[in-house]
Amino acid sequence: MVMTARRIWRAVVAERSMAPTLEPGDTLLVAPAGPHGLPWLRGVPRAGSIVIAEREGRFDIKRVAAWPVGTLRTPDALWLLGDNAAASSDSRQSGPVPLSALRGILLFRTGPSGRRGRVR
């Protein structure tokens, strides 16, 4: 098991559901969030943030979205969507993600060199 709690960690993107924002091979710096994360990052992240959640033993990177109209909002859960809707499997198929699965919030893209910088 990879230790992601309590220190900033590095991630590398695989697959294209967050394209064009994130492409495969992008390396990221991630701040630990969620129940075991940094104390000030334990709440629900703002809509629009890019977060990493654990699902079935692997890490998924998605964007926090507004809850769609007509869904029953659960308090400690997130509605996560990929930016590349056609190629993403996300809350549209699998429903909301509990806050307890949150592992990190994207801070910064460290590579490849031409794409370094803040990600919006």
Binding site: E15, I61, G82
Partner: peptide
Amino acid sequence: EFAPVTVHAHCDIPCGI
């Protein structure tokens, strides 16, 4: 210790195309 973790933005799942 600082090796990057793979995070998935998966698309081999039911995109249905």
